[in-house]
Computed example of a mutant assay.
Amino acid sequence: MPNSDLLPSLLFKINQNQLALEAAIMELTLWVEQRGSGEVGGNVRGALETISKNEDFIKMTLAVLMAPE
């Protein structure tokens, strides 16, 4: 398999890892907020919005990269 064929698979796996980290961080955020640290929770949620905003573009780009030519 040429190296260029590995790139879409690598990016897909990195994206999966990113989404898993987002979910784990959100769980921790909920835990922190339940203990009265709303400001910290709000800051984390703001940072996580970037991941959410970029997700559609990432999915679309991966679909193009992984599509057979």
Rank of each mutant, 00 (worst) to 15 (best):
L48Q: 14
W31E: 04
E22P: 00
G46V: 02
V64N: 07
M60P: 00
L28H: 03
K53W: 06
T29L: 07
K59H: 08
L19P: 02
N17G: 07
A63E: 15
E33K: 15
M60T: 15
R45G: 03
E39L: 09
E22Q: 05
A24M: 05
L21Q: 12
E27R: 01
Q34T: 02
F57N: 14
I58W: 02
G36T: 10
I58P: 00
A24C: 02
K59I: 10
I58V: 14
S37M: 15
T50A: 07
A47T: 03
A67N: 13
V64F: 13
E55P: 02
L48G: 09
D56Y: 08
L21N: 14
V40D: 03
G38S: 11
L30C: 04
F57K: 14
G38Q: 12
L30I: 05
N54T: 04
V32D: 06
R35V: 00
E27C: 00
G42D: 09
S37T: 01
G38I: 10
M66C: 04
G42Y: 03
A24R: 07
T50P: 00
V40T: 11
E55G: 06
I58H: 01
W31F: 12
E39V: 09
L28V: 03
A47K: 12
G41L: 11
E39S: 06
R45I: 00
L19G: 01
Q16V: 06
L48D: 14
T50S: 06
G46A: 02
G36K: 14
A23L: 07
E33P: 00
